[in-house]
Design a protein around this nucleic acid. Structure first.
Length: 307
RNA sequence: CCGGCGGUGGCAGAGCGGCUGAUGCGCGGGUCUGUAAAACCCGUUUAGGUAGGUUCGACUCCUACCCGCCGGA
């Protein structure tokens, strides 16, 4: 629970369409804080409607990560910080978020980490120390053609403790090999390095599956009405239909709709199903985090009187 | 009305006269340290239109009927 003392760093998590954006905004207004979006897709300029960005934060041009978009008077960081054809990963986000948090703390401004990208939030809240190994496209390309089983055997040969890497998850196996290639150290060792869990507060918002489905259903219609297909058309025009980000939830269906492959009704149904699936994965992740104080939507409405 | 083709799990869709009837999707659960709205793993408990027949044994062969699609009168 938020105390009378303003938090330095508060994570507001919850599945997509749970209402956490509104909750985060309310809390930020209450504490006179700033919001940092912890969302792997909202970082992209030009991906506005399908990522459920607040209309006030819609943008087609990227700006500096240190610059905030203002929503209802509250600074929101890490929206629109790169173009859809650039690589922006966990490490990029963590570095940007850390800089913003440091600056906010220096100015005594509470930072509210609001978003649904589980790994991103954990990276900051648990202080992940990521191996300083940027993606090596050449290295990856040479391995991607190889047999997954052979790559896995090589991984275990080089690092017998790396059994937490799943045998068929080629992407992760290659990443582990990439890190070892660059550092010469076992991947399992590097992964364990982390600072003690942050004492800061976690707030979770989950209104229940039925309510969530209602929210999602409504939001999908709103996205289509707001011009999701036009947004997709714009992305296709600028970056081509092979843009990997077009495989993102909502954009994938928007593309199919744009190309006349499915009806609007079918697109909406598919969007709802995909979003609910994502929500399940999110909840599955947070289930293990005992630090989260879970709220339902109704409790969240009364938060202002809780301090 | 005649002829042809087809009816398999929630959906799509294979093989086979006898061994647990694939596989994909969906659904449920899970993993997670540089693609994470990604990637990967596990599960989904007696699924063969109906009625007969042939056979030691039929989802598989035969007959009739029902239903669907195509073509012809």
């Amino acid at each position: 629970m938020p105390a009378a003392q303003p938090p330095r760093l508060l994570a507001v998590v919850g599945p997509t369409a749970s209402g956490k954006t509104a909750l985060g905004l309310n809390l930020a207004q209450h504490y006179q804080g700033a919001v940092i979006s912890a969302d792997s897709r909202q970082v992209y300029a030009g991906m506005n409607i399908g990522t459920a960005k607040s209309p006030q934060a819609w943008a087609h041009e990227a700006h500096s990560p240190q610059q905030a978009d203002i929503v209802e008077g509250i600074p929101h960081y890490l929206f629109n910080v790169c173009a859809p054809d650039t690589r922006y990963t966990l490490a990029t986000w963590k570095a940007d978020a850390t800089h913003v948090i440091d600056r906010l703390h220096a100015a005594q401004i509470p930072a509210l980490l609001v978003g649904g990208t589980m790994l991103y939030i954990d990276s900051v809240m648990f202080g992940y120390e990521l191996p300083p190994v940027p993606p090596n496209d050449h290295f990856r390309q040479t391995l991607i053609a190889q047999d997954t089983d052979a790559l896995y055997r090589e991984l275990l040969t080089r690092d017998p403790a790396a059994t937490f890497v799943e045998p068929h998850n080629k992407r992760r196996i290659i990443r582990a090999l990439e890190v070892m290639e660059a550092t010469g150290k076992p991947f399992s060792q590097l992964r364990r390095q982390r600072v003690p869990p942050s004492p800061d507060c976690w707030l979770g918002l989950f209104p229940g599956w039925e309510q969530l489905r209602d929210n999602v259903t409504r939001r999908v219609e709103e996205m289509l009405d707001a011009g999701l297909v036009e947004e997709v058309a714009r992305l296709v025009e600028y970056y081509g239909e092979a843009l990997p980000l077009l495989q993102t939830l909502n954009y994938k269906q928007g593309l199919a709709l744009l190309q006349g492959q499915i009806s609007r009704e079918a697109a909406a149904m598919s969007m709802i199903a995909a979003t609910m699936r994502y929500a399940h994965r999110q909840m599955s992740w947070w289930k293990n985090n005992k630090q989260i104080h879970w709220l339902t939507g109704i409790e969240a409405l009364h938060l202002k009187s809780l301090d």
